[in-house]
């Protein structure tokens, strides 16, 4: 049972990591690529780590995996924010949507 759950978490996490990679290629400008990459950094990484934690059970290994996760969740927004701010200050213009045509829902 736990094995199935852990495998599901791992595969789902790997899928979301892939989505981030695809987004990095598909998105039109720098800022939108950041949004795609943050899928990798949050949900992808979180699910992979959760899957590994379920596999490891209540051991020191799980504690270390949780530390990796906490580190990622506390530090990566800071790096993203610094990156976006530096880009804006250096004059990288975001491509914005036109006001008139309404956003299509996916």
């Amino acid at each position: 049972m736990i094995d199935v759950l852990s495998a599901a978490c791992l595969l789902a996490g790997a899928f979301f990591c892939l989505v981030g990679g695809i987004g990095l290629i598909r998105m039109p400008d720098f800022y939108t690529r950041m949004h795609a990459a943050s899928v990798t950094e949050t949900l992808g990484a979180g699910l992979v780590l959760l899957g590994l934690m379920l596999e490891a059970g209540p051991t020191l290994i799980s504690v270390k995996l949780a530390m990796v996760g906490l580190l990622l969740f506390f530090a990566s927004p800071t790096a993203s924010h610094a990156l976006a701010r530096a880009a804006l200050l250096r004059g990288v213009k975001p491509e914005l949507a036109d006001e008139e045509n309404p956003s299509s829902k996916p």
Binding site: H35, T42, F73, F74, P77, H81, A84, L88
Partner: peptide, 12 residues
């Protein structure tokens, strides 16, 4: 940080 952490929004 919470805004940046949620995919789809980045605090600049």
């Amino acid at each position: 940080n919470s805004i940046t952490l949620t995919p789809g929004t980045i605090a600049i």
